[in-house]
């Protein structure tokens, strides 16, 4: 429950107007820092819901697939440039962003990840790696401005940032595949 409290504190901190305005003022920080942090706050808050409503998660997310799909849909929606623009211009969309990333993405992610089998986990992992590569390629290569609120240079920066994250994912993937995990188990 302590975790859920930390998650709630983080969530409140992130939605404070000066904090939100600051994080949203730079495109890459909006997408690669504010949004993941919102998901992370939901990830922590999830403990509260899991303890309070175990039956709900058992009924609706028994094998983890529905929760993961919900997480992916919400996450991918916020990767659309128009959605980011809307969040900056329309307040109710911004409120929806805070709510959806925390409670519809972060919470189901926590509940689903442990339930998924290793094959499903690998698919999600590879999907995210590819997504970062493709986003990097698109945001660096595209000539026109795709967000009304951000300049082309910010778009390019976001592209390079996505490629950096893809590199981290690939590195970690290699590390995971090529190390002997039994080394980390107490004998």
């Amino acid at each position: 429950m302590k975790q859920a409290m930390y998650g709630l504190i983080l969530f409140i901190f992130l939605i404070l107007p000066p904090v939100a305005t600051f994080l949203e003022s730079i495109m890459i920080i909006h997408m690669h820092m504010q949004m993941p942090l919102l998901v992370f706050s939901g990830f922590l808050i999830a403990r509260f819901f899991q303890i309070r409503f175990p039956q709900f998660f058992k009924n609706w997310n028994d094998n983890g697939i529905p929760g993961m799909l919900l997480f992916l849909i919400i996450w991918l929606y916020w990767m659309i440039p128009k959605a980011m623009d809307d969040a900056l211009t329309l307040q109710f969309v911004e409120i929806f962003k805070f709510f959806s990333l925390t409670f519809l993405a972060g919470v189901p992610l926590r509940d689903s990840w442990g339930k998924l089998g290793s094959k499903a986990k690998s698919i999600v992992y590879v999907f995210f790696t590819l997504k970062f590569i493709i986003m990097g390629y698109l945001y660096i290569g595209i000539e026109s401005q795709i967000c009304n609120n951000y300049l082309i240079i910010e778009q390019r920066t976001l592209g390079w940032g996505s490629l950096a994250f893809a590199a981290c994912f690939i590195l970690y993937g290699f590390y995971w595949v090529f190390t002997d995990q039994s080394e980390f188990k107490t004998t």
């Binding site: 920080i29 820092m33 940032g161 950096a164 994250f165 981290c168």
Partner: peptide
């Protein structure tokens, strides 16, 4: 990997 992620968060922009 986390070190590289923090470096990229700091330096890409």
């Amino acid at each position: 990997v986390l070190l590289i992620a923090v470096i990229s968060m700091a330096y890409v922009v």
